[in-house]
Design a protein around this nucleic acid. Sequence first.
RNA 1: GGGGAAGUAGCGCAAUUGGUUAGCGUACCAGCCUGUCGAGCUGGUGGUUGCGGGUUCGAGUCCCGUCUUCCUCGCCA
Length: 607
Amino acid sequence: MRSHTCGELRAKDIGSEVLLSGWVANRRDHGPVRFVDLRDRYGIIQLIAEQDASPAGMEGLNGLHPEDVIQVRGTVRRRAAGQHNAERPTGEVEVMVAAVEKISAAVRLPFEIADYIDVPEEMRLRFRYLDMRRSPLQERMKLRTQANHAFRCALVAEGFYEIETPMLTRSTPEGARDYLVPSRMRLGSWYALPQSPQLFKQLSMVGGMDKYFQIARCMRDEDLRADRQPEFTQLDMEMSFVDEEDVFALVERVMSAVYLAINGQALALPLQRMSFTESVRRFATDKPDLRNPLEVVDLASEGCHLGFSLFNDVLHKGGWVRGIRVPGGGSLSRKQIDSIETAAKDAGAGGAAWCKVAEEGPSGPLSRFLKVAEGETPIDCPVKIGGLSRGGADFLKALEALPGDLVVTIADAPRRALTALDAVRNKAGQLMDFIQGPDRLLWITEFPLFEETEAGGYHPAHHPFTCPVMEDLPALLAGEKASIRSRAYDLVLNGVELGSGSVRIHDRDLQKTIFAAIGLSEEVANERFSFLLEAFRYGVPPHAGFAIGLDRLYALLFGADTIRDVIAFPKTATASCPLTGAPSVVDDHQMEELGLSQRTPAPLNEA
RNA sequence: GGGGAAGUAGCGCAAUUGGUUAGCGUACCAGCCUGUCGAGCUGGUGGUUGCGGGUUCGAGUCCCGUCUUCCUCGCCA
């Protein structure tokens, strides 16, 4: 149906007779001369017809509508001098139309197919196939293909097998909520859609596959975010007879191959590493954006000498007083500083006490607790900040504050303080325009094995097959939970958690210990994971793995604002698909076959 | 489950304190035009102001509810 695509004609093709197919991107009718831009995935070519030279072509280009699909026969010719379009690869030539066949007519579109048109996202998702005709999605689907290809090539070259694991599998109630699928063959029983291929990849290791990977779809029935979809894609990997060093090295090589394919530049290896504990202490998060230079300072020992009742109360209750010094932040406006405080409040903190630091002394809400009492002699401060009390000087010294800086402090219960400090660090970094420069990839290592639940119990921070750090094993056996470290690790890029992995447990007794530690009885553990525990009886290699969230990686790598922009057919925040209307009610007879009863659904899209 | 923002022609936006027949741009349709390429000019079509209720002589505007979308906390082993 075509001799060439719309994007490939060049000066060398001048004189050729061509057959082209594509969409009508634009029409420009000048009476006796008529232009049509014909578009396909490969580009845009200008068609032309002239009343005198090509009456048949003139007739054919008549009455076309935007996005009609047409087929055109014509001759490539050089554009007149001064009429070249330098912005298009095909801009040196045009096709003199001899005949046009309208293949498929298009009705009026819900939005124009043009990159410069701002279309609401709901509309873009409802008509995703039209959004796809625009270059941003065209480009991202191309890059996604190239990146996936680079991953596959790199892993196959490393000796990995690509193994497809089941989509219909067994529910494991730990962790995220499962998507469930009713069984017709065995009424009352359910499959679950996989949250990850975790157990199957471990079983593949028991099966001697040695190196496994899969570009795997994972489903989790949890509330969504800008960087979370109900189904998402992971590059899932597992290796036998390896430890974390082997995994780091492998993932680094593979990531570097993708950077080379997409950015044209390999990564500087090895990547930086930081323990979970250090990351939380310095950056108030387990996924720090290292492009942001701001760091958190613990002010517990200085904050209690200021006579600030809030600080004293919080510290007395076991809370945190921590602060962030913003170099040069004294230049921020009151409105900007308020927005930092708002960020802290939005993160759940009561507020943020701040002051600006200057040679003549501190100013702002926190300053009165730092200043010397009237009539007393200010401390002679080595960095020339006037008017300070002894406690105030020590406080600012701990922060290493200098004249011209802004100091923001958070005093709250540890958990809330942590999220608030993270928010303050991000907001202040943005306002100061600190967050720039090259991508910062790093490993976060030695995650805690357990996390405290709201009920006061413990559950695995990663998953129950993660191996503890051997040093901590005696403490674990003695009943300790909170301080036990695991051999789990995350890969973080510019403050985004790209993926995580761990060295797995390959010892049945240790596995049973962990199950017991998280309150999973032997019966329940046996019932849910009997197949894994059984497999471990038949000779299991030590193994470890990793999974990279490809949607998140690609959003960053391709410069997209959300992961929806790198996914062909994404869902909305309510996990619905505006295009197909999923989820939907099903026929009564389908329900009957499955032994289910229908419930009246909540209204959707009735507006 | 909690908090926040938004919703007015296909699309982007406006509409003074609650006050005329809800406007502008763009797209679309028609006509004109020999070189455009986000063409230009002239004219035209296009509205249950998300939906429901309330207050009022009068509601796009105020109040209540609801739906949708986005952001966010919880949640996401």
